[in-house]
Design a protein around this nucleic acid. Structure first.
Lengths: 93, 93
DNA sequence: ATCGTTTATCGTCTATAAACGATAATACTA
DNA sequence: TAGTATTATCGTTTATAGACGATAAACGAT
């Protein structure tokens, strides 16, 4: 399933994306409710819509999260393929 | 065994520390040679001594790495207790 | 006490991150 | 087509990161 075997640089980028409390919590939340959310995330955290959108952008760029446009909303979800590769990498450290 | 149950903030800090290719590679290296190294790390990477020292400082501050002064040298090693908690956290995501 | 080795810290510079408000873009709905 | 809701982007500000050279600090050996 994994298209590419990820390298150290890629994992570093994912770690960097997870290197902020809000972004870790966003990922935890996306995992918990496997149904993807979008604007609800903004309501959960005490930050502005633009700030959360920026955090989601970083998470998306790292690959750990994907975003799909559904009508006027954007639906975010964890890329479990990437997450599993991350789990595998960390487990083998 | 773990003195404290780590929280999200702590893990975010560790992720942040791992959020740089050089620092990931330093940790990988420290794990591989479980005997701790110090100045050798500087020789491995194409960065100045001060830059590597700064990276090691960040790793140490996150808790994933410990440094012990041995004479004129400083011996760095991975804190396996912390690493195991990290592994456990990631595995349960 | 001085010297050489090793590591940490300081000061500087440039680049990126983090947050915000304001605005643009998108796409339903009336 | 106009309006509304939702999200992304822009521009700005402040803070932190990342790199370096230079210097200081610690220690062992001469």
């Amino acid at each position: 399933m994994p298209e590419f075997r990820m390298d150290t640089e890629t994992f570093a980028k994912i770690f960097k994306a997870l290197g902020h409390p809000t972004r870790v919590k966003i990922v935890e939340h996306l995992i918990k409710i496997n149904s993807c959310v979008c604007g609800e995330i903004v309501n959960i955290f005490p930050f502005s819509q633009s700030t959360i959108s920026q955090h989601l952008k970083l998470l998306k760029e790292s690959g750990i999260v994907r975003g799909e446009i559904e009508g006027p909303k954007t639906c975010y979800c964890v890329d479990f393929d990437v997450l599993n590769q991350l789990k595998n990498y960390v487990a083998n450290l």
